Simulated assay, not measured.
Amino acid sequence: MSTTQNDGPSNKWTLHMEITDTASDGHHARARFVSVTANGKRKYWAWHYNYGGPGTVVVETTAQDTSSGIIKLGIQAARAEKSTVLNSCLDLRSP
């Protein structure tokens, strides 16, 4: 994940991630952005999927919260089957 701040202190960020499925296990990889606002609320953004098997999908999106600002950004990566998450990990950091 890489970030670029666009609009004042922690109000709007452009986010970029690459999802790579490295296992030939019949399951798909997915990832989503997670943000934490100044009031401590965590927001889970929409999942982005890699259904193509081993390979890479590039996704760009913008996360924003102009009411209370974003104090932490992160990414949650998962291995899934259909709508069921089999396992996942989350990394949150202060920008």
Rank of each mutant, 00 (worst) to 15 (best):
S67K: 15
A23M: 00
A29S: 12
I71A: 14
K82S: 15
K82F: 13
Q76Y: 00
A29M: 01
A38M: 09
G69D: 09
T20W: 01
S24V: 09
H28W: 06
T66M: 04
Q64E: 04
K72W: 00
Y44C: 13
D25E: 01
R30Q: 12
R42V: 15
E18I: 09
Q76H: 00
M17L: 14
D21I: 02
H48V: 04
G74R: 03
G53C: 10
S35P: 10
R42H: 13
Q76S: 13
E60P: 06
Y44M: 14
G52S: 15
E60S: 10
I75Y: 03
T84L: 03
G26K: 08
R30F: 02
E60M: 04
G69R: 10
I71C: 14
A46S: 14
A31R: 02
K72L: 12
S67E: 03
D25Y: 00
I70K: 11
Q64L: 11
N87P: 01
T20N: 12
Q64V: 08
T22V: 11
L86G: 07
T56C: 08
Y51Q: 12
S68F: 05
V34C: 10
V57E: 08
A46I: 05
L90V: 13
A38H: 12
F33Y: 08
Q76K: 03
N87V: 03
S24N: 13
H48A: 12
T37W: 00
H16Q: 04
G26V: 05
A29V: 02
T20F: 07
G55R: 06
V34M: 05
W47G: 10
K41I: 15
E60V: 08
Q64N: 11
D25V: 03
I75S: 07
P54A: 14
H48F: 12
T20Y: 06
S83Q: 09
C89G: 13
V57G: 02
G40L: 11
Q76I: 03
G55F: 00
W47R: 00
D21A: 03
D25I: 00
C89E: 13
N87K: 02
S24F: 05
G69C: 12
A63M: 04
S88Y: 03
S35L: 01
E18F: 09
T37Y: 02
E18G: 11
F33P: 08
S83V: 04
T20K: 09
K41V: 15
A38Q: 14
M17Q: 10
V34T: 15
V36A: 14
T66H: 11
G26E: 05
G52N: 15
L73K: 11
R32S: 12
T61N: 09
D25F: 00
V36N: 13
S67P: 02
I71H: 08
M17C: 10
Y49F: 14
T56K: 12
A38C: 12
R79H: 08
S68Q: 13
E81N: 14
T84Y: 01
